[in-house]
């Protein structure tokens, strides 16, 4: 089902001309709705700095010795630095294991005061779905969190859960993913639909998510793709003038 939806989105996006060359294997449409990142536009127009904070859980990190350098927050930072060289870019990852949306929201005030970001990338949903948090409460936490950031004058991008074919029978993501889509649309913030995106990449053979391996190569490639796709989203939604193709190889 998702396959069809994802394929539809790919077609739709390519028709709308939002996406680059087909040779860009992991380039994909990622935005639902065309909600601008106004603070990002302003910050970059003023010459920066562009400070981005990533809130998230374990799936925003990577293990291994180079974990910090290979996880998507740093792939995002590297890509942005290359694409908008005139602007100082800093990405701070505050990803922590096993944190629900509700718990994350409780740290927002302090972090916003300490870090003063222009943009927050908020990855959530996975741990809530694993715990089976009441979807209604999850919805309230999401709405509360997005409101809190917007009223603090910070742009927000929501990032939903990963697609994992193996745990589909163990974790019921649907209700949480639906709630994230709804909040994104209703509060007018971009949603980076990691779930659909990874499904598309898996189904089209870009990244093999079925592989059983201890090797980190696939994970690195995935995070690189996510980082670049996020950069592309920020440039689009922030109406930034990128130096080169938005999705460099």
């Amino acid at each position: 089902m998702r396959t069809v939806v994802a394929a539809f989105l790919v077609v739709l996006a390519s028709v709308c001309g939002t996406r680059a060359e087909p040779s860009e294997a992991c380039a994909a449409p990622v935005v639902l709705g065309d909600f601008p990142l106004e603070r990002v536009s302003v910050a970059v127009a003023k010459g920066g700095p562009l400070k981005i904070v990533v809130f998230g859980t374990t799936s925003s990190t990577l293990g291994g010795s180079d974990g910090a350098r290979d996880a998507y927050p740093w792939r995002l930072e590297a890509t942005l630095k290359r694409l908008i060289p005139g602007t100082p870019v800093e990405v701070v990852s505050l990803a922590k294991p096993r944190v629900t949306a509700d718990k994350m929201v409780k740290t927002f005030d302090r972090v916003l005061a300490d870090e003063k970001p222009t943009l927050v990338i908020w990855q959530t949903g996975t741990f809530d779905a694993m715990l089976g948090v009441n979807p209604g409460e999850f919805l309230n936490s999401l709405t509360g969190g997005v409101e809190k950031m917007k009223s603090a004058g910070v742009d927000v991008i929501l990032v939903n859960m990963q697609y994992n074919p193996r745990t589909e029978l163990m974790v019921a993501n649907e209700a949480y993913a639906d709630n994230m889509r709804w909040v994104a649309r209703e509060r007018q913030v971009p949603l980076f639909d990691r779930l659909s995106l990874m499904r598309t990449w898996n189904d089209t053979g870009v990244i093999d998510l079925y592989a059983a391996t201890k090797d980190i190569t696939i994970a690195k490639r995935l995070h690189d793709c996510i980082g670049r796709a996020l950069a592309s989203l920020i440039i689009d939604a922030g109406r930034l003038n990128a130096l080169e193709s938005k999705t460099p190889r």
Partner: peptide, 17 residues
């Protein structure tokens, strides 16, 4: 599934097990 499907991509999701 738990014993056969290790992949660093899904470190978090496997926590469901």
């Amino acid at each position: 599934v738990q014993s056969s499907s290790i992949n660093p991509v899904f470190a978090e999701e496997m926590g469901a097990l």
